[in-house]
Design a protein around this nucleic acid. Structure first.
Lengths: 194, 194
DNA sequence: CGAATTACAAATATTGATATTTGTCATTCG
DNA sequence: CGAATGACAAATATCAATATTTGTAATTCG
């Protein structure tokens, strides 16, 4: 059953890549799998739910890749936060570079799935807050509310990780600019500017 | 002639407000003015040029409103930068609040007029750089390249002034969050983090 | 003579008749 | 009996015929 779900999700991504989200039909997905479309509804209650699941899996892969960095309590927080952020950017940039169509499809998909995206952003904030809390405990940051600081850091870096901006940047490498922006913000955290 | 252009621009904005950019026809604008559409082409070479002019005027009003702040060399740079940024946000928020349809129309319009938007962003960067340069001269910022610093500051604040994000935020007041983010960044500039 | 219009071809949008898709369910398959 | 399907009504999408709009140029208006 769960195996079936995964196969359907894979096929859906294939169709999305080729046709974009607007023109991806669940009949197309069924055809791609050589099954009747009714069979898809055994795994997913609706087209919307199928698309939600695709989006969730995509965003989940990102937070999964970042989690080890967020949890690597051995490394100093400022360095870890930089690594986390640059890895996030590199992940997205690689996706745009490898398959701009698919990235655009995923982005368009996510635009309409506010709930899924909110949950993703919450997890991103949780990971960032964990790093900042460690930094505060170690005396690297003069921060009392790690969650609030995390929200500020993610906000300040939106320009560099939001899919829309990543897509707009295309192949341009913004990592140096992002690194400098983060350096400014980290200096603020260190100095206890908030 | 220039008077005619202004009247046409006003009428275009009216139609845009009601119909959105997608469905705004130059025939509609002409009808709204009680003239033949051919007459519009005496003032603007094409529909595209008309829309460019509308966008330019909109964005110009914003930079015009901010310029006095950028040029107020009496005030200390950090304070001035904060005032500049919060004014920018307040301007946009007010526009969204007063007439969300129109703001969305302007935003959609701007999305397709890269050239006009680039020029606007360049002017924004120029104003920001002027403030930062003053701050550097006065010793408030440890910054050698004011233009680069300006780019970083605007990038870090994208989340708070980019029309798309402003539109998404709707009526929510992000100014406190923005103020804190800017405080972090300013601390970085003060500390010479770049 | 400058300001505006009507007239027009090419490009674009609208419409409504037709075909496809979505989601459900009773039925078949193994 | 669980897994999959075919058949179906309602909702959507497609498509081609029709109507509107764009941009130009020749013509009228004051």
């Amino acid at each position: 059953m769960d195996e079936a779900r995964a196969r359907i999700l894979d096929a859906t991504v294939d169709v999305l890549r080729r046709h974009g989200p607007e023109k991806t039909r669940v009949v197309d997905v069924a055809r791609a799998l050589g099954m009747s479309h009714a069979n898809i509804y055994r795994s997913f209650p609706s087209r919307d739910a199928l698309f939600d699941a695709v989006t969730e899996r995509w965003l989940g892969a990102i937070t999964d890749a970042l989690r080890p960095i967020a949890q690597d309590r051995a490394a100093p927080a400022p360095e870890r936060l930089e690594r986390w952020m640059l890895t996030l950017m590199a992940l997205k940039r690689a996706k745009v570079h490898d398959d701009p169509e698919l990235f655009a499809a995923y982005h368009a998909l996510a635009e309409e799935r506010r709930g899924v995206v909110e949950a993703h952003l919450a997890e991103m904030a949780r990971q960032t807050a964990a790093i900042i809390a460690d930094g505060a405990a170690a005396g690297a940051f003069a921060v009392t509310d790690a969650s609030r600081a995390a929200r500020l850091v993610l906000g300040a870096m939106t320009r560099y990780h939001h899919p829309m901006h990543v897509l707009e940047a295309g192949d341009a490498d913004c990592s140096e600019e992002a690194r400098q922006t983060l350096a400014l913000v980290l200096a603020g955290l260190r100095a206890g500017a908030i």
